[in-house]
Amino acid sequence: MGIIKAFKLGFDYLKYDEDGNVQDTQRAVDDVNLDIEAGEFVAILGHNGSGKSTLAKHLNALLLPSEGTLWIDGTATDEEPELWKLRQKAGMVFQNPDNQIIGTVVEEDVGFGPENMGVPTEKIWKRVDESLQKVGMTAYRHHSPNKLSGGQKQRVAIAGIMAMRPKCIVLDEPTAMLDPNGRREVLKAVRELNQQENVTVILITHYMEEVIHADKVYVMDEGKIVMQGTPKEIFSQVDTLKKYRLDVPQVTLLAHELRKSGVDIPEGILTTEELVSALCR
């Protein structure tokens, strides 16, 4: 069994009327099966309202399933009385960098997680030093988070999660509010964590460019997982992706159009270099 496993996971948002009776239910996650191995880089794609953020909140036990089961490192989320112990294993980075930084100084914010876990003081300092190092924010440790750029804030947030030494980090659209530079910064940090520290990464996004380095991609639509496979397998199905209102990277689209008009190149080209070598063959 992988580090995160979901079996027939379902979740309903309930809408209450004025008397507190359930008026309406909306299925946000429907019959989702997942099995994520430790050390993998997994991307979950979907357009707005596809249920990907709701699914993300399950991976961190912020929401508990209405149906089915979700296991984090072998423990079912609805059977653990102290949920914060699960949250330590699967850290979560949110979309808005301002709303997830608690400390007034960068290093204090990174120390917040370990403080909550009851780590002794000297060890907190060690963890904070290491985590800031890993995301390249050591130079800013005494700064106020308010004066950092979006990408820097998001890296501080990632350091804050890393200081909890999680086995897995879930990033819920971490780059949606950032400019292209900030986006690159954050993705680079995430990829390095995955490769060097062997942390399992689950990246939730609707930017196609961000998933080309993933080991595995899941595509969600209307609460269901509708496609899964390697980035190459996913991106070779340009027309299916369009049906789910997702755009493929420009290079892939160009290659797809060239192929349609008769140029002999393979499907599923992800980078400019690949296209160049395919064309020069």
Binding site: R87, N99, F112, P114, E115
Partner: peptide
């Protein structure tokens, strides 16, 4: 975000500084 970072009140909490 605080819950996701294991905040569960002041019990058993240590301090960085």
């Amino acid at each position: 975000a605080m819950e996701a970072r294991c905040y569960h009140g002041g019990e058993d909490r240590t301090q960085m500084k």
